[in-house]
Amino acid sequence: MQSEKINKPDINIPPELQSQVAVTTLDRIYNWSRASSLWPMMFGLACCAIEMIITAASRVDFSRFGMEVMRPSPRQADVMIVSGTVTKKMVPQIVRLFNQMGEPKYVVAMGACASGGGPFKEGYNVVSGIDKFLPVDVYIPGCPPTPQALLHGLLVLQKKIEKEKLTDAEWYKKDFHEEIPIPILGPDLLDPRKFHLFKKELETTTEEFLIESDAKGEEA
C-alpha cells in the first residue's frame, strides 16, 4: 500500500516486482516521508485539547498515521495544533513557541476559537483567530471538533504536504528568515507589526483612518 503512494503513477512496474520496486521522484518521497511522520507539539489550550488527547488515545489513535510522537518541546515538533481559545495573555507565548519550531512547520487551527475566536470572540481577552499572528494551514470548524473531525483535518494537512514541491520550499532558500514579532501586553494587546498604525491614528481622525485603511484593503 505504501508503494502506491510513493510510486509515480505513469510508470509501469512489472507485477512481479511491484512489492519490491518503486520508481519515484524526489518530491514524492520527500513529501511522503514528511507527511507520514508529522509530530504534533504537545500543547493544549482549552476544551479542544481534551479532544486532541482523545485523538491520541485508543479510540481514534492517530499513531496509525505516524503522529503519536507528541513532544512538549517546540524544537522537536512539526505541527502545532492550536487547540482552543487563544487569549491575549497567552498569544505572546504561542508566537514564541512557533518561532522556536524548526522548519518546515505547520499550524492547524483546531475548533472555532482558534480559527476565528469562536463563541468567545467578543470577549475582551480573546484573540479572534490565531491566523492574526501565525500562518495557519488547516482550519477545522466545530466546537469542539470530534476526534474524527480532527483526524480528518490532519489528513487534509497530509494531502497539502503531499502537494508541495522541493523547489518551492522556502525554508531551504538562502536568506529565509521567518520570525514573527512577539506581541506585547500593553493596555491591550500590542502587535509590533502595527505600530505604524498608531502614528497614523494620532494624526488623522478616526473616521478618516477607517476609510483610508478600508480603501487600501488592508487585511489584519
Partner: peptide
C-alpha cells in the same frame, strides 16, 4: 461580516486615547 472589519486595528483591541506604544513599559 467579521467583527474585525469594524475595528480600528482590524483585531479585537482598543487602546486609551492618544496611546503611544513606544513609551509603553511592561511591568507585570
Amino acid at each position: 461580516e467579521h467583527a474585525e472589519k469594524k475595528n480600528l486595528f482590524k483585531a479585537n483591541v482598543k487602546y486609551p486615547d492618544n496611546f503611544d506604544p513606544d513609551k509603553w513599559i511592561a511591568s507585570g
